[in-house]
Each structure stands twice: as structure tokens, then as C-alpha cells.
Design a binder for these strands. Structure first.
Lengths: 197, 197, 197, 197
DNA sequence: AATGAATGAGCATTCATTCAT
DNA sequence: TATGAATGAATGCTCATTCAT
């Protein structure tokens, strides 16, 4: 067993990433000090700077992990061979459920992205765009097939839906009346109903 | 009168509020220093603290002004005697247009609200709720009248729409292909289409 | 009735002096802001600076009033035609009683004197010295008459007694077991007993 | 080891403590800025806050060191097997000598203690009380043995003496006519004479 | 006699980052 | 691989004092 793990066996970089994610979500990026992160992870500052070049690098890693996960799930749904309306409904509902299950990640996304330096911001945005375009392609496919109304530009439809997804971290409470799946079904339903020809 | 205004004739508190609004939107609350604000407003720190108790008070004032304006507009639309679907469509489109026209305020709202202390946060949230409830009442009125589908709880419908409004500050660019009014019409249309029985 | 009094009829300068005395004693000179003083006195800053040149002037006035009172009392006792031991005992006990009755003044004296500028400090010290010398003269008179032991220099005897007087503000509590008069009698007794030949 | 010391080989925390002690005594706690302290110690602010949590912590450390030293000396004298009047005389004289030798510490004690937060103040006071009680026990022992008069409560006797000790920082000057030891002998003598039956 | 807006210098504290070990 | 002492610049805020009215 290498030195990079501690009592609990989790490697140091992952412990740092987990601690940072939780703290960034709870307090915001600027209000979380490097000292707090290393204390929560049970290591020292030197260790953090051994694995990450800066506090900002840590934030970017949090983003990278989330983006990778979301893109994988979207690709899976979009690549299935179900009818396009079912594929869109599944993907639209899934992003709601996984966002609720990782509300910390979502909070960080919509509140801390502007804390990245221009270059890193650009990189994250381009990965976001890839995600957005995959989703938009589904909408356009349905519009071309006449399954969805073409009254609204597909881009706007996607932003309409993702607006509500981002908004989840503002109002969703685990102890509220609806389960994540129920919320997801309702929101996907609203999207599909809005797209009825 | 001479003392409370400067070269441009605008009272000092309003100059400070305007400068703070712009800077909070551009850089975020934590990244904007009091020094930057007073320099942008052309006054000294002492003057700022003469009118505002703290940097946080300044942020709260920004919120208070926006909330007041939005509530007034919503009340006007909701109180008209047009049919309920027209009233909802007008209100839904209007909030989009005014949000786009004041994107700075919107950015601050969705990125900096968590920087308020618990008490102030509570106060702002309760005013937000009042706004939300007025909007929800419109949806419920239409559902009771059978004009709108009751498939989705009215609360969720409202959050669906406001998610897309908040999201505007993330993607809307003045030099994009759509005018504010066009965006507003499309988004209001999506809402009304989703509510078709 | 002039403008210098308010609802309660007390002239503004005296109200300021009383407020300052209380606040300086409670919080210390440096920790008391001019704003607090004027609020406690129910006037504005402009009024304070109309009557007093500076915050420091206010402190000096507090001193001046106390010194005047104490000197008057000491002179009365020292000038009586009782035997010297009785005169010393009376004066020694009286300064204890009046110090306890004005513990605020005493606290200020022993904690804030070093906040005066060199010139003002010098002036206060010279008035203190006059007081000290009058007291010392009583001791010396008794020593010359053989009523008091000459084993200790009179200066040191006076400092010994006044040390205990200054110390009162550290330990005396109105709700303690001894009345001011009892404390005074005990301390004067200790002084006289120490001076027995 | 190289890092924790500088040119003169004294560890940084001790250098800071020494500089703070001198400056607090000369100018008072509130009038001494953290900047002055670190400049006097030849380090930066960051270094100070690496070792001490706050300016107040620094003050408390000054107290803690003095209290420890004084308690040790008192215990040594009180535990000897000389007659009780000799033990009291030695202890009473010793506290005078060591106070004069550390007049800075004494000044801080009697002028800055009220600058501590309530909790820290309480802690320091309780250690003071332990010291006071050890001294009082000596007086009571002599009173029970009939060596000292019981006319005055022992508590008051202790406060009488310590008043004069505190007062030293007000009037004692190294270039005065009396050596520290002479002052100590006189003050101890006054105490013992006052206690004669 | 009194106001209160405005100043400007100063304050204690925080923090991401570096680097000798 | 990891430590932790040290840096140095920045931050929000306070306050005695001034002065046009």
C-alpha cells in the first residue's frame, strides 16, 4: 500500500477533491480557504500543492469530473435505438435525477464558474457546449421528423430545459413532497408537452 | 444640495448603488472590493460607510430595488382584466424582457444571494416567495378554469419557467440573433404550449 | 431658557461630560468613540466640537473636575485644628469613601491618564503632585512631632496609601461584605498602625 | 532550526512576545498596532498570525508568562520553614523587587487587563485569585498564631499591600533615590508594622 | 448653537502560495 | 511524498475631525 492513502484507504488527491467539492458547494469558492480544504481532507497544505498547482486547479478538476460523468450518461441515452421522443424524454429526465443526486456539483457549477481564469473558463465552456449540442441534436432530429414542433429554435428549447435544471439547486429540498424521479418526470413531461406539434 | 451630489448631479448613495451593481455583476460579490466600488463611484470609503452599514447592506439594497420593480410589473399584468392565458403570457414574456434589460441585476441575483447573512437572506427569500406565489396563482387560476392542463403542479410550472429566466444571464448575448422581445415571445410560448390541456 | 439645555434641563457640556465619564470608565478611552458619546448625550458631533476642542480635551475635563473635588476635600480635612493623627486618619478615610463613591472617575484615572498628550499629561500630573504633597505634609508633621514613626520616608508612606486607593477600582464591589465606610476605616487604620512609633 | 530564528538566534514567538511586552507597556494595548509589533520583532504579520491567533492572544501570553513566574516565586517563599512573619516579609519584599525589575509587565497588567475578552479575562482573574489566596493564607496563618493583629480582615490586608505594588509602575523611577531593594524593604516593613498586634 | 456629509489615514485579520527540509 | 514556517499584498471596516450651511 502506497503512502498516498491514509487510514480510510482513499488516495489523497481524491480525498482533497471530495473535501473541496463539499466545501465549495456549502460556502462558495472564494469563501473556502485552502486551509479548510486540507483540514477536511486530513492532509497539509504542502500535500495539496504537490498534487494540484493551485486552488483554481482544484476547482477545474471538480468541473472536469462532473462534465465527464454527465456526457457519458447523455451519450448512452442518445445512442439508444428508441424513438426520438422517448430518447429525449429519458435524457431530459435523467439529467434532472443525476443533478438532484449531486446537488453539490450543480451548485458549484452555477455559482463558481466565473471564478476560473479566462483560459480555464473557455475550456470548461467548450466541454459544456459539446454537451449542449448533443442534446440539441436530439431536439432537431425530432423536429425534422415532425415529431416535435418547430415553432421554437432548438437552441432555445435546450436552454429552456437546462435553465430549469440549473434552478434545481435553488429550490429542490430532499425533504420536499416530490422524489427526484417524480420531479424529473414532471420536468421532462413539460418539455415534451411544449414540443407537441 | 451641493454636498450630496457631485459633478454629474447624481446623489452619492445612488452613485454607489449603481457602481456596486455593475461591479458585483462583472466580478462577483466577493471579488469586488469596497475600494473598487468607491473609486468607481468617485467617493471615499468613509462616504460609503456613512450611507451603508456594510458591503453586505449594499448588496441587499441592490436586491431590494430589483425586487420592488419586478413585483410592481408582475402585479400590473396580473391585475389586468384580460383572459388568464393572456395575462400569464404577458407576465411571462415581460419578466424575460426586463431581465434581459437588467442582466446585471439578474447575474447578481443568481450568483450572489448566498453571500447574504442568514437573516438578510431570509428576508430576500420571503420577498421572492411573494413574487413566486403571485405568479403561481395565475397558473392555478388557469388550471381551475380548465384553460391549462393540471398534469403538473403549479409550483413546478413556475420553477420551470423561472429557471429559464435565471439562466438567461448565462447564455444571452445582446449581439446574438434574437432580440429580447423575440426571446421573450419564444419562452412565453413554450410555457403556454406546455400548459395546453 | 437658553438653547444649551434639552428636555432634562441639563446644559449640553455637562451632559457630554457625564456621558463621556461613564463610557470612558466602562469601555476605556480608546474604545469609546465620539459617536457613542454624542449619542449617549443626545446631541450631535457638531455640538461636541463646539464645546470641546477634541476628544482628548473631554478627557482632560473629566480629570480636572475630579482633581478639583478631591483637593477641596483634602484641604478641608488638613486645615482643621484636630490633632495631626486625627487629621491624617480623617483624610485617609475620606479619600477612600469618595473614591468608592466615584469609582468611574477612579477607573478612568488609573487606566486612561497615559492617553493624554505630553503637555496635558504634565499639567494633570502637576495637580496630582500638589495633592500628594499636601498629604505628605501631614505625614511629615506627625513625624516631626514624634506621633508617627520616621522609619519610612513620608513620600513612600503616601504612595503606599494611595496605591491601595487606586487599587480599589480593581477589587471593590458595591455588593461585597463591607460598606464604603468600613473599608475606609480599615484602610486608614492600617495606615495609622503602620505609622505607630 | 534555521527558519525559526533570525540573526540573533531567538525564536520568532519569543521575539514577538518581547516586542509586544515592551510596546504594550510603553503605549498601551490599543495604541500599539500589530504592524509596530512585527516591525519591532523583525518579522511579518503573517508570521505573527502563524503563532498567535490574534493580538489579544499575544496579550494573554504576556500575562500567562508573568503569572507563572510570580506564582513560582511566591510558592517558594511561602513553603520555606522560616517563622511566618519572616516568610510574609520575604514574600512581600520579593514581589516588590521583581515587579520593579519587570515594570513593563506590571504596567500592562494594571492598564490593559480590561482589554481582554470576557472569557480570557475570567481565566487571568482566576489565576490572579490563586496568587492572592496563597498570600492571604500567610496573613491568616500569622493572625491565628497571634503574631499578627486580627483587627483587619486578611483579604483587605492583601489588597492593601498589592495596591502599593501595582502603584509602583506609576511612580517608581530607576534613577530615583532608592534602590529596588530599599523600596522593597520599606514597603514590606510598612506591612509588617501595620500587622503588629 | 448646531448639523451631518465627507474625509483619509489607520486598523486587525486573512490567505494563496513558496520553499528549505 | 510531504511538512509547516513565512511571506506580502489585499480586505472590510472604524474613527476623530472638518466645514459649508
Amino acid at each position: 500500500m502506497a503512502r498516498t492513502t491514509d487510514g480510510d484507504g482513499t488516495p489523497v488527491p481524491q480525498r482533497l477533491l471530495a473535501a473541496a467539492t463539499r466545501l465549495f458547494a456549502e460556502q462558495g469558492y472564494d469563501r473556502t480557504s485552502v486551509q479548510e480544504i486540507v483540514e477536511a481532507a486530513g492532509v497539509t497544505k504542502g500535500a495539496l500543492y504537490h498534487y494540484f498547482g493551485s486552488k483554481e486547479d482544484l476547482l477545474q478538476e471538480v468541473y472536469a469530473r462532473v462534465l465527464r460523468l454527465q456526457q457519458e450518461r447523455l451519450d448512452d441515452f442518445a445512442d439508444s435505438d428508441a424513438p426520438v421522443d422517448e430518447r429525449l424524454r429519458s435524457a431530459a429526465a435523467d439529467v434532472v435525477v443525476t443533478t438532484i443526486e449531486n446537488l453539490d456539483d450543480a451548485s458549484i457549477f452555477f455559482r463558481s464558474m466565473h471564478h476560473l481564469s479566462p483560459e480555464k473558463n473557455k475550456q470548461v465552456r467548450s466541454e459544456r457546449r459539446r454537451y449542449h449540442e448533443r442534446f440539441r441534436a436530439l431536439v432537431e432530429e425530432g423536429q425534422r421528423a415532425g415529431v416535435f414542433s418547430s415553432a421554437t429554435p432548438a437552441d432555445l428549447v435546450v436552454d429552456y430545459h437546462f435553465g430549469s435544471v440549473h434552478h434545481l439547486s435553488t429550490w429542490y429540498r430532499p425533504d420536499g413532497p416530490l422524489t427526484p424521479q417524480q420531479v424529473a418526470d414532471h420536468l421532462a413531461d413539460l418539455l415534451l408537452r411544449a414540443l407537441r406539434p
